[in-house]
Design a protein around this nucleic acid. Structure first.
Length: 403
DNA sequence: GTCAATTCACATGAAAGAGACCACGGTCTAGTG
DNA sequence: CTAGACCGTGGTCTCTTTCATGTGAATTGACGA
């Protein structure tokens, strides 16, 4: 009986026409034919990088703006165009794009250099070599022939936060040592005040030119959504007002187009799954819920055990009485949790960092406060809605092997 | 009542260790001709 | 003779610990009005 029911479910599933024409539109790797509302910026980038096609070293460029405002897209678009021309005209110009945030790819000095060398087709072991050895290989590889190199470092702020700014200094200085070749660096950062915290020497050489990407406003996001929706969904699938609401949500969140697109995609998926033939406005709300839930669940399940244990302690304190938790108390409970889960408890120093990291992840709010005579501590509260709280706790307990 | 010193309970920094991963070169071993 | 197995050394990377220093306001206590 069950099998038959399932069979008919799939038949129904197949016969039902999908709301989506193409889901690829929503992938982060998707490249729209037309980049809306970024003409000025692309023009600027092009005019700064232009000289490279005549083999003159272009200025180093620094691009910044919040997430999802089209920085990466614009840069990628420009360098793609340029490398096509370079290829056609046989110009020895090489453009390399590296995302520094991708774990295990370029989040340390060694890995970044290794990745750069790999772009030239040389194999570099993932570890084992001294870093300066990799520098040497890189150096020799570039300088073996005359060429111009433009390196795009996306999310450069993440990298510098982890490994310090010495790396950038080395990179900017390497030009002086090169005989035949030249390097230009394009840094992309989400952090608006990132450059201000750099060493002045690096700051001046890295940001010879700067371009600011302002957030999209609601109307611009609407344009973008409309453009993509036209390609992604079948006609008449989107109820009027959906796009507007979607862009309003995203504009509220500092004009993040990526978020807006994700919202629209998830809304579409939800509508489809629930058997609607149209994406309704209420699906947007549902989608926002779901994205948030998924994000938190994803974070929680992928975190190491110790993080889970800390979070669990905070959660169990939170449910007891609905107020604010302090670090010391959380640590007490955490030690108990560790004992029950068979973990070796970490020092308070480390737990303090873990709490700060959980705050960064947006699962809890941890604010440092001073209680005067009674010391200084973090004031911890949950950043998640209480509805999902017990569910999260259950998942954590399973993960930790608590009963 | 006022004001500076004190004090608490951690926060925050720096450095260094542990353990996992890996490359490289040298040595040993077994298989081959 | 040679390929492969097996060390030891030296490197990176992540997570921690250890030790040291910093910090902001409630509290305290001396002082003066």
């Amino acid at each position: 009986m069950v099998q038959k029911g399932l069979g008919s479910f799939f038949e129904k599933f197949l016969s039902k026409e999908s709301l989506f024409k193409s889901k690829q539109i929503f992938l982060s790797t998707y490249f729209p034919e037309l980049i809306l509302h970024r003409n000025d910026q692309i023009q600027q980038i092009a005019s700064i990088l232009g000289p490279s096609l005549r083999l003159e070293k272009p200025s180093n460029l620094f691009v910044y703006g919040k997430t999802g405002v089209g920085k990466t897209l614009s840069i990628k678009y420009t360098i793609q165009q340029m490398s096509e021309i370079a290829k056609k005209e046989k110009i020895p110009l090489k453009l390399i794009y590296i995302n520094c945030k991708l774990r295990k790819v370029a989040d340390t000095e060694y890995r970044l250099m290794a990745q750069l060398v790999r772009e030239f087709g040389k194999e570099i072991p993932p570890t084992g070599l001294p870093t300066d050895e990799v520098y040497k290989i890189f150096f020799n590889t570039i300088d073996s022939e005359k060429q111009l190199l433009i390196i795009v470092l996306d999310e450069i702020d993440q990298l510098v936060k982890k490994v310090g700014d010495e790396l950038l200094y080395n990179l900017t200085r390497i030009n002086a040592e090169l005989e035949k070749s030249q390097i230009s660096i394009i840094g992309i950062s989400n952090d608006l005040i990132f450059v201000d915290n750099l060493d002045p020497r690096i700051k001046s050489s890295l940001s010879e030119e700067e371009i600011l990407f302002p957030p999209y406003n609601a109307l611009q996001i609407q344009d973008i959504l409309n453009q993509r929706a036209k390609e992604a969904f079948n006609e008449q699938v989107i109820e009027p007002g959906v796009i507007e609401k979607c862009s309003a949500y995203a504009a509220r969140e500092h004009g993040d187009a990526r978020r807006a697109l994700e919202l629209l995609r998830v809304a579409g998926e939800l509508a489809e799954r629930n058997g609607y033939t149209q994406v309704k406005i209420k699906h947007i709300d549902d989608a926002e819920d779901k994205i948030e839930r998924d994000r938190i669940m994803d974070i929680i399940t992928t975190q190491p055990k110790q993080f889970q244990a800390v979070l669990h302690s905070i959660l169990s304190l939170y449910t007891k009485k609905n107020n604010i938790i302090f670090t010391g108390k959380a640590y007490e409970v955490y030690k108990g949790t560790c004992f029950r889960a068979g973990l070796r408890p970490l020092t308070q120093r480390r737990v303090s960092d873990i709490i700060a990291e959980l705050d960064m992840l947006g699962i809890i709010n941890a604010k440092v406060i001073s209680k005067g005579r009674y010391g200084r501590t973090r004031e911890i509260s949950l950043a998640i809605r209480s509805a999902s709280e017990s569910k999260i706790k259950k998942i954590l307990e399973e993960g930790l092997g608590l009963t």
